[in-house]
Amino acid sequence: MPALDKSTSMAEAIAQIGDGARVMIGGFGVPGTPFCLIEELVRHGPKGLTIIKNDANEAGMGVDWLLSAGMVKRLITSHVGLNGNAIRMMNAGEIEVEFVAQGILAERIRIAGAGLKGFVSDIGMGTLLAEGKQRLEIDGATYLFEPAIEADFALVHAARADIGGNLVYEATARNFNPLMAMAAECTIAEAETIVPIGGIGPDAVHTPAPFVDHLVALPEQLMEVYGVVKR
């Protein structure tokens, strides 16, 4: 049985994302952030988005393009410390920000991808982050219910893909990408290299093809933002 070729154009893939969509974006800092998909999303221009991403990148980079374009209503994230613009917009009430402990964010996304509705944890008990959360008693101790985070779209960055949508990530660019690829209704992956079926061995696959809906090839020469950041 031949595999379906999932490759499409950047514009076609991103044009599906409408106003008010919930969009997960992979990456932890620069590595794994799908900058080209974000750039196309800015060009397409839907409004009132909920963005789910570990961090807000840095000012003038990645997620900040969406923030600066006024496209984001709500940001669900673990921290925004490297993006002064995001902090300013949050303090001015221009965006709503929900902070989630980093591993709880990852797990809430993973759980959505696993087809479950939530999990129970003691992380954050006795702190501000426990406030307002549903509590459960188990064996006489109190725990917090952490609901799954679902999304309409996931935008992920892969180092390599085959045309059927099997993905491979490189080094610490893996981070949230494989979790988000599983958690959204529609997953759009950009890949630095796309190979024919068979070009990635079954044991080497990080994200299996059934989780990927659309595959977009990146230009051979990546834009500068993907490179080593000089500080």
Binding site: S78, F99, A101, Q102, I104, D122, I123, G124
Partner: peptide
């Protein structure tokens, strides 16, 4: 600016 991974590291 958000808690990052600190809570889980400190607690576990």
């Amino acid at each position: 600016a958000g808690v990052g991974g600190a809570i889980e590291l400190a607690q576990k």
